[in-house]
Amino acid sequence: MTTRILMICGSLRAGSTNEAALRTALEVLPPGAAGELYAGLGDLPHFNPDDDRDPLHPAVAALRAAIGAADALLFCTPEYAGALPGSFKNLLDWTIGGGEMHERPVAWINVASPAAPTGGGDAHASLRKVLGYASAGIVEKACARIPVTRRDVGPDGLVHDPAIRARIADAVTALVASR
């Protein structure tokens, strides 16, 4: 049986190292796994609890359906102003009411450079907190800090450094093994 991993990038920036890490994760999936990169972050409306009812906005319904169809989730998000980027937090807010993340295995890859003020630690502490509210199953062995710089990303949007690719592969393999 194939393990389906939904990969969600918390950055809307073109050429994001976070997206490059997830695109690379798609390339290094272990046998028996399939992945999909979620592309609807920018399409989600601002979260309003009054709108968290049927009929849902089509972008919200698509997000919840994608999460519900996945066996596991892999996040990669930057830190912005000491927390999660607003658009990514908005996505997470839309997941709370649906219950699709309940006990679903989740992990994240932190690609912040060592020079970043907290190395992305504040964003990931926030992510951990929100995922706790969603009752997601955090797979600690699959959560990894793997710094990726813009120089590490090729023109094709992938990371080609063998050591970095191996570390990304290890994280994805640990997530798949948790199933």
Rank of each mutant, 00 (worst) to 15 (best):
A116V: 04
L127N: 04
P105D: 01
G99C: 07
G132V: 02
K129F: 06
E103N: 15
P117T: 06
I109L: 10
M101P: 07
S126I: 05
L131R: 08
T118A: 08
V130A: 07
V111K: 15
A115V: 15
L127G: 08
G99L: 03
A125C: 03
D122Q: 13
A125L: 09
G120A: 07
A116G: 08
R128D: 00
A112D: 13
S113Y: 13
L131N: 06
A115G: 12
H124I: 03
G119E: 01
W108K: 12
R128E: 05
N110P: 09
V130H: 02
V130M: 04
H124K: 04
A107Q: 11
A123T: 10
A116Q: 04
L127K: 07
P105N: 07
W108N: 11
L131C: 02
R104H: 10
M101W: 06
W108L: 11
G120V: 08
N110D: 02
V106P: 11
P105H: 12
G119A: 00
H102V: 12
K129T: 06
L127P: 07
A112E: 15
V111I: 00
L131W: 02
K129P: 09
A123K: 00
V111Y: 15
M101K: 06
V111A: 10
K129C: 09
R104A: 05
E100R: 14
L127E: 01
A116S: 07
G132Q: 04
A123P: 10
T118H: 13
V106E: 00
S126H: 11
L131I: 00
P114R: 11
N110F: 08
G121P: 06
H102T: 14
G119C: 08
G99T: 01
R128A: 05
E103K: 13
G99N: 05
A112G: 08
A123Y: 08
S113W: 14
P117G: 02
G121H: 08
R128Q: 04
K129M: 00
G132P: 03
N110V: 01
P114H: 13
D122V: 14
L131G: 06
S113Q: 13
G120I: 04
T118L: 13
S113L: 15
S113T: 14
G121Q: 02
T118S: 12
M101T: 04
A125R: 04
D122Y: 15
G120Q: 03
D122P: 10
P117M: 13
V111G: 10
